[in-house]
Amino acid sequence: MEQLTASRFLTVRQEEDWKPLLLSAITHVESLHKKTWVYADGEAYSVSHPLKDLERKLPEDFVRIHRSFIVNLLAVERITRDLASNLVMVLVDGSELPVGQSYAADVKRVLGM
């Protein structure tokens, strides 16, 4: 599968239109209700790729943090903990994404925590 690093864009869909979206504009990617959603500039776009494929294709700034989320590390404002002491990533757009238990060690390694 080709790496998206060769391209700085991911083609996304919003309603009936297709749009090339800059990878740097993407804050996170979510798998929800058997669809994959890409979030950028306060908008949600659908893509035809499953999360597993995007995880392999996206550049190293994108890290899988949960079974339902991939995050752009450049969009992380801070990392905190919830009431159960689980890691939570707060993004520049205000989104708060949980870090899954099975991904926490890898996230900490990537971030040097």
Score class of each variant (00 low, 15 high):
residue 101 Q to E: 09
residue 42 G to R: 05
residue 97 L to C: 04
residue 39 Y to N: 02
residue 32 L to N: 03
residue 84 A to V: 04
residue 83 L to F: 14
residue 90 V to I: 15
residue 80 T to E: 14
residue 34 K to I: 00
residue 68 S to D: 10
residue 84 A to I: 08
residue 95 S to W: 00
residue 76 V to N: 01
residue 11 T to M: 03
residue 52 K to G: 11
residue 75 A to H: 07
residue 50 P to F: 09
residue 101 Q to L: 15
residue 89 M to D: 01
residue 17 D to N: 10
residue 62 F to K: 03
residue 98 P to L: 08
residue 108 K to M: 15
residue 4 L to K: 14
residue 72 N to G: 13
residue 55 E to H: 07
residue 84 A to T: 06
residue 71 V to E: 00
residue 51 L to N: 07
residue 70 I to D: 03
residue 11 T to P: 02
residue 38 V to W: 03
residue 33 H to Q: 12
residue 94 G to Y: 03
residue 50 P to D: 02
residue 66 H to R: 12
residue 52 K to E: 11
residue 33 H to D: 13
residue 26 I to K: 03
residue 36 T to I: 02
residue 31 S to P: 04
residue 108 K to H: 12
residue 94 G to K: 06
residue 112 G to M: 14
residue 16 E to Y: 09
residue 47 V to M: 04
residue 59 P to M: 02
residue 67 R to Y: 11
residue 54 L to A: 01
residue 11 T to R: 11
residue 53 D to Y: 07
residue 40 A to C: 03
residue 45 Y to V: 07
residue 35 K to M: 06
residue 34 K to V: 07
residue 45 Y to N: 04
residue 61 D to L: 12
residue 50 P to M: 06
residue 4 L to R: 07
residue 20 P to C: 00
residue 29 V to E: 00
residue 112 G to W: 06
residue 105 A to Y: 07
residue 42 G to I: 10
residue 56 R to D: 13
residue 13 R to L: 05
residue 10 L to D: 03
residue 39 Y to R: 00
residue 63 V to N: 06
residue 4 L to D: 07
residue 86 N to M: 10
residue 55 E to D: 08
residue 84 A to E: 11
residue 106 D to W: 12
residue 101 Q to A: 15
residue 109 R to V: 12
residue 76 V to I: 12
residue 62 F to M: 04
residue 36 T to W: 02
residue 67 R to N: 12
residue 70 I to A: 01
residue 102 S to M: 13
residue 104 A to M: 12
residue 108 K to N: 11
residue 96 E to C: 11
residue 58 L to M: 12
residue 68 S to C: 10
residue 14 Q to Y: 12
residue 52 K to D: 01
residue 75 A to W: 00
residue 15 E to H: 05
residue 112 G to Q: 13
residue 62 F to L: 05
residue 18 W to L: 14
residue 50 P to K: 10
residue 59 P to S: 08
residue 110 V to K: 13
residue 95 S to F: 00
residue 88 V to M: 13
residue 14 Q to I: 02
residue 85 S to E: 14
residue 43 E to R: 05
residue 30 E to Y: 00
residue 20 P to M: 05
residue 18 W to Q: 11
residue 4 L to M: 08
residue 113 M to H: 11
residue 113 M to P: 02
residue 74 L to G: 01
